[in-house]
Design a protein around this nucleic acid. Structure first.
Lengths: 212, 212
DNA sequence: GGCTGTCGATACACCGGTGTATCGAACAGT
DNA sequence: ACTGTTCGATACACCGGTGTATCGACAGCC
């Protein structure tokens, strides 16, 4: 169920990937709900025969696409705190770096938003989603730890921080998507993240602040 | 463009409303993208003739539906800070009261999420959406002011607070939708809102705290 | 380089939604 | 109660997507 058992030959693998890429474009342009197998095939330069030989439905294709994108996002995230990456000196710049690694991809926002809605109403898919969120948070923690360590802070409440960041990420992405190119929206996003990180972390070695 | 110029007779008003109610149900069940005019009409017990006599497209219907829902939400919100409503004594309980007035409506979340995605890719619709968001924030401010006044605080940065709250609202709603019935998710939501309100407000008459 | 089985193109029959034009019935105004 | 108007049902022509069954071609393997 999780990964694809299909690709047997090299030819097939190529076709699959082209279909996946094309689907991403079509979903972004038309919306998942309004997308058709036909459109995807046309965009990929194949016929419907090729599609049905690779997937049984658009849903199935969607899941594979989703898995690929999530993986890519995670790896970008991890690069931010890689050993050879430049160091950061304060919370704000750390936040900036992370957010820049996760570009405001309106296209992807649209797809995700729709898929989330779709998943919520499809029993089983919601669980897949929840697991993914979890996995992202899991992968996020080491990155945050490493960055905070560089500026001499440590996390006080992992769970709360993780949830807050994901919520803030989703929420602000929606705002950015609705008012594209808004400079102030971008700035505010950084503000919000900075506030969250500062609230749920404290100076590492020094004595603690007495309030909060 | 904003409100409906259509309903002339009583009959028409009834039909419109039944179509709207039916549409909400269909959108929730099928997803906005996969919904058809036909399905909506069937659910409402009308034929497509009735639909096209009332709306020119599903988009148009949705906007009216959204307007209604927003209005209902605003009025619930305003009741919270009504003159005869019980007073609050601290930020946390104020937040709780507000959030309880805005029930977690997964159905509505799905519809909104999908339509937002749709709106983003439809020039014009995005603007309408953005305006609505703005209006909600506008209406939110007096409520917040009143509640904060009851506990002796005042807002320091309206814009930032407004944006943050909306973002947090969207973001946490997504989480709640994905993991329905999660107690900790609900609690965390209160935490997050409390943090935001406290960060963007200060004690009103007393001397200021020296940090932040 | 030849054989074999996989893969994708082609063709077919079908379904369901679209939007419009027309007509009769219910309704409001007086 | 009468009458003109409005509203929604019906019918029509059309389009575009669906999924399957079949066939030819090419890739993979020796």
């Amino acid at each position: 169920m999780s990964s694809a058992p299909k690709p047997v030959t090299r030819r097939r693998a190529h076709t699959r990937q082209r279909l996946l890429d094309a689907a991403r474009e079509v979903f972004a342009r038309e919306g998942f709900g309004r997308s058709t197998v036909e459109q995807v095939c046309e965009a990929a330069g194949f016929t419907r025969g090729a599609f049905y030989s690779n997937f049984t439905s658009l849903d199935e294709l969607f899941l594979e696409m989703w898995a690929q994108e999530s993986a890519a996002m995670l790896s970008r995230l991890q690069d931010v705190a890689a050993v050879d990456a430049p160091k950061v000196s304060d919370v704000r710049s750390a936040v900036k770096r992370v957010l820049e690694a996760l570009p405001v991809d309106t296209e992807w926002f649209q797809i995700t938003a729709e898929f989330t809605a779709h998943a919520v109403r499809t029993p089983g898919l919601a669980q897949v989603m929840a697991r993914r969120e979890e996995a992202i948070q899991e992968a996020l923690f080491p990155v945050i730890d490493r960055l905070l360590e560089q500026i001499g802070r440590k996390v006080t409440n992992r769970v709360a921080l993780g949830r807050s960041l994901v919520a803030a990420y989703d929420g602000t992405l929606t705002q950015l998507a609705v008012e594209p190119g808004s400079r102030s929206a971008l700035r505010h996003r950084v503000d919000l993240f900075t506030l969250l990180v500062e609230s749920y972390s404290e100076p590492a070695t020094r004595r603690r602040k007495f309030l909060l």
